[in-house]
């Protein structure tokens, strides 16, 4: 941990030194203290003025959590069913593998046509980004569950429903959590990009960054990027803690 902070600090120092050489004009590459100052400005004044950073962050987080939540609700059951039926797998995997490489951003035009410029479009795009990793990891998680565990409850007369709930779901939980983590990360990246391109509602980190760009505030653009990184790091940390708690049996 300390070493990681050391690496981080070293990079900041390097960046600062590089700025001091003035090879790149300040307007294009602000120095770390300038970005920090812009960060504080975003916190207190906001961009556009009055729209402060916490508001932007909350809106973005709300969208990403709604989209990822929806992806979990749909993706985990889908993965459980596909994972336990080779027949359904062979039927649906080609469709999934066809849709999966289409980046969520390529869906933006359709999303805007179907859902307009607001919340629903954003949730839909994030859902698309998070759904496939969650389905695939749930599916492979189910496949990796030892058949012996299934037998050990079948012997007590367990029906398919009980097998899903008591064996396949908990047994696949390590993969499911990995899938959710990956899905959340993709959702987060997708969201901010989507907010650049038109999904906006007055608030949103991507929207905030675009505003800063329009006003030539490179320092606030970079501060906004830092905010995206910090929140991403925070989500990753919380997911790690959650996984550790849920998988304490491992």
């Amino acid at each position: 941990m300390l070493k990681a902070i050391g690496v981080f600090t070293a990079l900041l120092l390097f960046w600062e030194l590089f700025c001091l050489t003035q090879i790149i004009p300040e307007a294009l590459l602000p120095s770390p203290p300038q970005v920090a100052k812009a960060f504080i400005e975003l916190l207190y004044t906001g961009m556009p003025p009055g729209h402060r950073l916490p508001g932007h962050a909350l809106y973005s987080l709300g969208r990403v959590l709604a989209g990822t939540g929806l992806a979990v609700l749909c993706g985990v059951p889908t993965g459980l069913v596909l994972g336990s039926s080779p027949k359904l797998r062979s039927l649906f995997m080609p469709v999934i593998n066809f849709l999966r490489p289409i980046p969520p951003l390529a869906w933006i035009p359709l999303a805007i046509l179907w859902f307009g410029l607001g919340f629903a479009s954003a949730v839909y795009l994030i859902f698309l980004g998070a759904f496939f990793p969650i389905v695939l990891s749930t599916c492979s998680g189910v496949n990796s569950v030892d058949r012996l565990f299934v037998d050990s409850v079948r012997i007590f007369g367990a029906k398919q429903g009980a097998i899903w709930l008591k064996v396949l779901l908990p047994g696949a939980m390590p993969s499911i959590l990995t899938g959710i983590r990956v899905g959340l990360g993709i959702g987060w990246m997708t969201l901010v990009a989507a907010e650049f391109t038109g999904i906006r509602g007055g608030y949103g980190l991507g929207y905030m960054i675009m505003n800063a760009r329009d006003l030539q505030r490179t320092d606030e653009v970079m501060a906004g990027m830092a905010a995206i990184g910090i929140i991403g790091l925070g989500m990753e940390y919380l997911m790690g803690r959650l996984a550790k708690h849920l998988l304490r049996w491992q």
């Binding site: 012996l148 050990s152 012997i155 908990p170 047994g171 049996w249």
Partner: peptide
């Protein structure tokens, strides 16, 4: 409804329980 119990050769306890 067989009412039969079985103990497996490899321990088959559910690791998450």
């Amino acid at each position: 409804g067989r009412n039969i119990g079985m103990i497996f050769q490899e321990v088959a306890l559910l690791p998450w329980r």
